[in-house]
Design a protein around this nucleic acid. Structure first.
Lengths: 162, 162
DNA sequence: AAGTGATACGTTATACTATTACAAATACGT
DNA sequence: ACGTATTTGTAATAGTATAACGTATCACTT
């Protein structure tokens, strides 16, 4: 697992955006998915920050840009990206975050800072942990997993958020 | 970790209920929390099955028993038990499940069967996994974690659910 | 037993999150 | 250009959760 701590520290955010958009284009090309204006814009909006954004916040942005005004517009685009693996839903927040490691397919771990809202993604090796062992022991067939860690990022630990 | 697979197989469910209620009484006594009729009833309702139940389903039960009719009644009781550690919220389902292992405080893992809705809880040792290592590497201070595994339980794998 | 402060409950209203359903428009392969 | 599949526009509604405030109850002290 790469110790990619960039989300919690200063970094060339333009690179994040460019990488993710390129990955998105690749995925769409390979899987013959349509990269429509709304979809592209939604991904761009999510990519602006390393924070999870609610569907209705996305919608508000779309509305202000005349790209759509009703909830299904936002939800459809978000679901599209979630299916494509380029956006993840943070269950804890009912919000969505762009994927910073699109290449690694499986078993993401999210660290969610309650101070600044930053969501950092890491990829765990598969079959590594207690959950997999417990499932195997119980004869449970795993289809997907959610792993979200709430807490304080390095910046917010030293700051005023208690 | 105890290989407690009872949730997925026939078992004396009365014992589950009795154990949990006794644990609830203990916790309330020790922490001087009030075990009111609404709270007790909500816990009993959750304990009836090993499934997660939505707040509004709980509310409907309460309503039919004249124990409350408005959302805050249900949410307050549910939040009470969640704070006390005797009920967990399943983020994936926006629903609540009674805790079957109240003694073990930390880091639960939930296996959620999409066939029958059963939610089985296991307790992971702390600090065991990739998430903790990733957090440590990033300097992230962990306050709580969510680990939910979706899939099919042993019964539903052989059944008609595909 | 009455007073007092904290806790819990009743109720209204509202905010936030998400989906269904169907019609219109657009893109794609032939 | 045609027919089909996909996407979008739009209205309506379903589902989840909280804010706010007044009333009642509990527990502790005097």
């Amino acid at each position: 697992m790469t110790p990619d701590v960039t989300c919690f520290s200063a970094h060339k955010h333009n690179d994040c955006v460019a990488n993710a958009l390129r990955a998105a284009e690749d995925v769409c090309a390979k899987q013959k998915l349509r990269l429509t204006p709304v979809r592209r814009r939604v991904l761009e909006i999510l990519l602006e920050q390393h924070c999870a954004i609610g569907a209705y916040d996305v919608l508000e942005r779309l509305r202000s840009e005349n790209l759509g005004s009703q909830p299904p517009v936002a939800y459809r685009a978000l679901d599209f990206w979630v299916s494509a693996g380029l956006v993840h839903k943070i269950q804890n927040l009912n919000a969505f975050v762009a994927c910073t490691q699109p290449a690694h397919g499986h078993d993401p771990i999210f660290m969610i800072c309650r101070g600044c809202g930053t969501v950092a993604e890491r990829t765990a090796g598969t079959g590594d942990g207690a959950a997999e062992r417990a499932a195997a022991a119980a004869g449970f067939h795993v289809e997907s997993t959610v792993r979200e860690v709430m807490g304080l990022c390095p910046n917010c630990q030293s700051g005023s958020v208690k």
